[in-house]
Design a binder for these strands. Structure first.
Lengths: 131, 131
DNA sequence: TTGCTTGCAAAGGGTTTGCATAGGA
DNA sequence: TCCTATGCAAACCCTTTGCAAGCAA
């Protein structure tokens, strides 16, 4: 994948990404910090934040920003998410909307679906002009 | 619409929703605070936050939470958004995915589309059990 | 008059950042 | 050795909250 952002492979970054890929719970930075600390007790929260930012930029992980604090997903392949409006947990949705249609996807996994949010990310006309 | 959350109709709330409905720029709480202040110079930022929260809960406005700070949308009807990855502006997408398909919708409005995020909101199996 | 809502200011929580040191290449 | 990445702690920013006063009903 894209690794241009990194000039050195540090032990911290290696452990951060390993721990993130072990789970499918979409941990927050603080949660991941605790997970990593069991292997690197002297790591700092700042280092976790810095690496998560770089990893997300380079496309190795996903940063999920809806709902207050950011959560991270070790699986960068396109897939969607369901967030529980009560407890805040985030689960994966592996079906594709293109194949199954929104209605079918929405009914999956035992969730009682209330709504969905679709957001495109791109470059607006003005920013395209500016280069 | 739903107004159960409100017990009194205050001048502050009235002006907040009026100012929000005047624009389609999805202002943040602070931006909206400045807009409202031109009409109510003594309003506090806390009041703006409190009312935006209530208005979003009652369904009168939309709270957009992706990308750091929250932005607000005075149009509560279902529609989607495009966010510029360079300048951060958020525009509306009024076409429906069901009618036009993801690919067509993504090409609209002059944006150079890089990606999209789809998130469902619902109640997870565990929280359903707990009532 | 009643008690919800406001203004004010302080506190809170997540995230970012400056700086000296450590350590990868 | 050279210079990026780290650890630490302070700073930041957005948002929430406690409390006394204000005001809608």
């Amino acid at each position: 994948m894209h690794v241009e952002a990194f000039q050195r492979n540090t032990r911290q970054r290696k452990v951060i990404i390993e721990e993130l890929r072990k789970v499918d719970t979409h941990p927050s930075a603080t949660e991941l910090y605790e997970m990593v600390r069991s292997r690197l007790p002297r790591i700092s929260l700042g280092t976790v934040y810095r690496n998560l930012e770089l990893l997300a930029e380079s496309g190795e992980i996903l940063k999920l920003e809806s709902g207050g604090q950011a959560r991270f997903d070790g699986n960068p392949a396109r897939h969607h998410h369901v967030r529980c409006s009560v407890c805040g947990r985030v689960d994966d949705v592996h079906r594709s909307i293109e194949d199954d249609g929104l209605d079918q996807v929405a009914k999956l996994d035992g969730y009682q679906i209330q709504d969905y949010r679709l957001e495109f990310i791109g470059i607006c006309p003005e920013c395209q002009k500016k280069g």
